[in-house]
Design a protein around this nucleic acid. Structure first.
Lengths: 335, 335
DNA sequence: GTGAAAGCGCTAACAG
DNA sequence: CTGTTAGCGCTTTCAC
């Protein structure tokens, strides 16, 4: 059952009749710095290969206080947005010797706090979090302990932290303007509950500001069970015989639910009702018709976040650092 | 920069004027077993709360040899199939106190070996791997070291290991039969290179066996750059003016590439050319038209894999364990 | 009922 | 150039 015959530095030292220190130094590439002779170093390396020695990083971590691991906490790793983000971050971090511990908070603030605590117990060197917290309490605690972390996608009010995200406000603003320009003046904005997330609030603000004189039409949808709410909203719109109605979904999850309902009812996009969404996903490109959306630069977000954390870990920069990236409007024939 | 004021068991012991042993016992719930008085235990717990003590699991791991972490290695965590799998496995494992270290091998055998080594250095308690290895060498090594692992999705020849996957053969077989039944006798099977993966081979075998008398039409596509190959194949078919041609894609990635090309050329599915795929993804439900596919029971796969590993970790069962799950044919109007 | 002490495998002063 | 020593924070045998 248990793993046997683990070769340690002590075993190498014993066989070579040198000290553990010597072996440690060589293995960690500090041989030259300590003027250890070529021949001794070679001897060590040969033994390392012969015995297939692998350092025990747990022991090293206990000693150095560094685990070379980064915690990534997102709402749901199965969500393509976060999955892609995870992949980008992993690729960026690996060359620096870090690996990722990934967990999903399931959009629950309490779960998230538990995950953060667990990860800290496991001594991850830093945290990247797409947070679902309502307030800044937990992050204040992290800051007071000097724990390196960067918020991604969503920020939290009342606290200055590292943050990488997109300009949700102007994304929603420009999409709304685009709709108005195309003659849509009944723009139904589909927000979600719970609605305290910064992304959701900013998008709604962008929508409202773009409307200016026009009557806002905000509808709230239960994020975890959007179907029923959406069915009512869509029925309401269709029955009221509105001229050129358009649904502006605040995220891809709700937009997919819209598509299902619209298809089930045999409603035509964009003739009967138009549909656009925040957060572009591959599916929108292939759906019938393709759905216009606000695309987020996921790759750049991920790299920036990883980079900010890395810099903080190496003590190289001032904090906090904020990166707000621009979104892109992907125009497709859904409106 | 560094994290300060970490409370240790020694600090609690000092303040309470008891031994570290005592504190450790209580904190690990072994107080009663060692007949430690109620009042002493209470004292310890109060102090733990007062100082907000969190055990250092790295130290614990060094001592116990267990890290409570499981490594998950897949081809690409951004692939919806693996992302979903990761989520399921994480949820299954968390209640047992395990967390997941996730890495993507990018379909490269060498990367995968490096990831396995790194994870072992970091002392993960077990490994779940959707392997891209050509041979069983690495896994023989793991077995000889008694390292617990389970292969998922893809198996490796010439070695008996824990394995959880689907019946790729019968999935492809039944899809092919279904196509024949619908009058398609020009079934182009789109395989991928590299083609040594068990999933790919089994699917091809299922396709071939189902054809019986009919002429097989296998085309190989470069997995990492399918576009060019597919363009040639599709052109070839369209130019040859075949009666009722159908493309059977061996995976979702290639099917998406087909969709892009078919759309770009203005070709109609299923009138001009039909299209079906192995491995159902959400996108197929929404595309125009929806694409029929062989759906894999990802959730069950993930849970089984996690369960098998857990059982091995607790030394509860005989090895190896194999679970081959049934696929489902999702019939949509693409043929 | 409780504690002393050893040690997991490694790194880093410090010594010579 | 190389070695001795002292822990990192925790668990666990053994002893009282």
């Amino acid at each position: 059952m248990s793993v046997k015959n683990q070769i340690t530095i002590a075993e190498i030292a014993r066989q070579l009749e040198v000290s553990k220190t010597l072996v440690s130094l060589v293995v960690n590439g500090k041989g030259d710095k300590h003027n250890i002779s070529e021949s001794t170093q070679k001897k060590v390396w040969n033994k390392v290969k012969e015995l297939n020695y692998k350092p025990n990083s747990v022991a090293r971590s206990l000693r150095t206080g560094k685990t070379q691991s980064i915690g990534l906490i997102v709402a749901d790793i199965a969500n393509p947005f976060y999955a892609r983000l995870a992949r980008i971050i992993e690729d960026y971090l690996r060359p620096f010797g870090y690996h990722l511990v990934i967990s999903s908070s399931d959009e629950t603030a309490e779960n998230e706090v538990n995950l953060i605590d667990t990860m800290i117990e496991h001594q991850v060197d830093g945290l990247i979090i797409a947070s679902t917290q309502k307030d800044s309490e937990k992050f204040q605690e992290l800051q007071s302990k000097n724990y390196p972390f960067v918020l991604i996608d969503r920020y939290i009010n009342d606290i200055q932290t590292n943050y990488v995200g997109v300009d949700n406000y102007s994304g929603a603003y420009s999409m709304t303007k685009e709709l108005l320009k195309s003659g849509y003046d009944k723009v139904y904005y589909l927000s979600v509950t719970p609605d305290y997330l910064s992304t959701i609030k900013e998008r709604e603000r962008g929508y409202l500001d773009a409307l200016s004189e026009i009557q806002p039409l905000i509808r709230k949808v239960d994020f975890n069970a959007p179907h029923k709410d959406l069915e009512n909203i869509i029925k309401e719109i269709m029955n009221a015989d509105i001229h050129k109605p358009v649904l502006f979904s605040s995220n891809n999850h709700v937009a997919k639910a819209c598509l299902r309902i619209i298809r089930a009812y045999g409603i035509k996009i964009p003739e009967d009702i138009a549909l656009v969404s925040f957060d572009d996903i591959e599916l929108f490109e292939f759906s019938d018709p393709p759905i216009a959306a606000i695309s987020q630069p996921i790759d750049r977000m991920g790299r920036f976040a990883a980079d900010v954390l890395l810099k903080q870990l190496s003590g190289k920069t001032q904090y906090p650092v904020k990166h707000i990236l621009k979104t892109t409007l992907v125009n497709r024939k859904s409106f």
